[in-house]
Simulated assay, not measured.
Amino acid sequence: MIKQERVGYILKRLGELYPRPPIPLDHADAFTLLVAVLLSAQCTDVRVNQVTPALFQLGRTPAALAAAPLEKIEAIVRPCGLGPQKAKAIKMLSGMLLAEHQGQVPASLEALERLPGVGHKTAQVVMAQAFGVPSFPVDTHIHRLAQRWVLTTGKSVLQTERDLKRLFPEESWNRLHLQIIYYGREHCTARGCDGTVCEICRTCFPERQKSLRTRRA
Rank of each mutant, 00 (worst) to 15 (best):
A68R: 09
T152A: 13
M92R: 11
V138K: 03
C201T: 13
A36F: 04
E5S: 12
I23A: 11
V125N: 10
I200M: 13
T203A: 15
L151W: 05
A99Q: 14
T140R: 11
A75Q: 14
P53H: 10
R78E: 14
H141R: 11
E74I: 13
G132M: 08
R144H: 11
I76L: 10
Q57A: 15
G8T: 06
G117K: 01
V51S: 01
P19A: 04
M92W: 00
K88D: 04
A63E: 15
A130F: 07
S94N: 10
H177V: 11
Q4M: 07
V150W: 09
A89Y: 03
G195D: 13
G103S: 09
C204P: 03
A41E: 05
A130R: 04
Q102F: 02
L38A: 01
I76G: 04
I2G: 10
I142S: 07
P79Y: 13
N49Q: 12
E113A: 03
P79Q: 05
Q50C: 05
R144K: 09
A67C: 10
G119N: 11
G103W: 10
M96Q: 14
P19S: 03
K86A: 02
F56P: 10
N174T: 07
S135K: 07
E186S: 12
V197G: 00
L176G: 10
V138R: 08
G154Q: 11
R6H: 14
R148Y: 02
E113L: 05
L70E: 15
I2R: 15
E170Q: 14
C204H: 00
E161Q: 14
S135P: 05
A87T: 05
Q129K: 02
Q57K: 14
H177R: 06
V133D: 05
I90E: 01
V35W: 02
